[in-house]
């Protein structure tokens, strides 16, 4: 492999490894806008990953596989919002419970369907989301290797980031979501159903997380294995926390974690004796990222808070279609 090819492959792997984290971060972003943390993304994505594999094998349709992944994600989102908003459970506990149910439930279902506890590999004839070669760009040396030949779901992750941005900042629903997040009582006073908006946010969040799950089991690899997410949902969640709920920022930070992941993969080959330390890199980077960004935010503290308050006042004063 030539040097430029090696660089191209490395850059390619950044996009590939960032994809599930981007979906997780976007899923977190949507509920964060309504003031709720979705800490069950890990469970949502895990369930979706299994659901995609099973239904793509059953229906022999890639589209249906992905759709069922999204549906499974939404279902879990619905369960969380029901438990939290109607059942009045503590959100943290709910999400811990949902993650537990997803971990145990997927392994259990896996065993019931295939008779093994490890993977669906060779047990289920599941499909793969096709990869796309971009004409012209694919012939450019480094850029071509980097940008071309990705899974459709990888390209769609960036489209999805744009869609989430549109949803949050350019639609009525998004405005209501932000309003509920900023001040639920104010939202209630102008006739917005807080429960309904939050539920809708969880359903959409689940669907977006479901796309990430579908990517993991139909693109990243083409099977489901237990605990295959290995904390990616939480890494995405922290990418979102760091950027305080901005879809574009969350995407960029997810890419940063993708770089950490890709570097770990490269180092794994070269530094064989230290492979376990290399595997820690993404998690260490995540903690460091949170520490550094929170420290910066606290240093800026007052100024930042001021801005938010002013923006919020200006924002609500200008919007007329809150009804």
């Amino acid at each position: 492999m030539s040097f430029s090819e090696a660089i191209g492959t490395f850059l390619f792997s950044i996009f590939r490894l960032s994809t599930p984290i981007i979906y997780a971060a976007l899923a977190a972003c949507i509920t964060k806008q309504t003031g709720l943390l979705n800490m069950a993304i890990e469970g949502i994505m895990l369930t979706a990953a299994l659901s995609s594999v099973v239904f793509s094998a059953l229906t022999q349709s890639v589209v249906l596989g992905v759709l069922f992944g999204m549906l499974a994600g939404s279902l879990i989102g619905g369960i969380i919002s029901y438990a939290n908003l109607i059942g009045k459970t503590e959100l943290y506990l709910t999400c811990i419970a949902i993650n537990l149910i997803a971990t145990g439930g997927t392994t259990f279902a896996l065993y019931m369907i295939t008779g093994t506890k490890g993977t669906t590999f060779s047990a289920l004839p599941s499909l793969e989301v096709p990869n796309i070669d971009i004409p012209f760009i694919k012939d450019i040396p480094i850029l071509g290797t980097m940008l071309s030949g990705h899974s459709i779901l990888t390209y769609f992750a960036f489209v999805c980031a744009f869609l989430v941005w549109l949803l949050i900042y350019k639609t009525r629903l998004g405005l209501r979501m932000r309003c509920v997040g900023e001040n639920p009582n104010a939202a209630l006073s102008v006739g917005i159903s807080v429960t309904r908006i939050k539920t809708v946010a969880y359903l959409i969040s689940g669907a977006v997380g479901g796309l990430g799950g579908a990517f993991m089991s139909m693109s990243y690899v083409t099977w489901f294995s237990r605990d295959m997410l290995a904390g990616r949902g939480f890494i995405g969640l922290s990418a979102n926390n760091i950027t305080a709920g901005s879809p574009v920022g969350a995407t960029l930070f997810s890419m940063l974690f993708g770089i950490a992941d890709a570097s770990a993969n490269v180092l794994q080959i070269t530094a064989a004796g230290l492979s376990y330390f290399v595997k820690m890199i993404p998690y260490i980077i995540t903690i460091l990222g949170m520490v550094i960004m929170e420290a910066i935010r606290i240093r800026k503290g007052l100024k930042f808070k001021d801005q938010v308050v002013r923006k919020a006042i200006a924002g609500t004063a200008n919007e007329k279609d809150l009804t």
């Binding site: 109607i86 059942g87 009045k88 459970t89 506990l93 709910t94 419970a97 149910i101 145990g104 259990f108």
Partner: peptide, 23 residues
């Protein structure tokens, strides 16, 4: 498989934590 116990634990947490359960 013994894994269904993990699911049960999740359900127990949800039910005990649900303030509206039997409220």
């Amino acid at each position: 498989p013994a894994e269904f116990i993990i699911v049960i634990q999740g359900i127990i947490i949800l039910l005990v934590a649900a303030d509206s359960f039997l409220s």
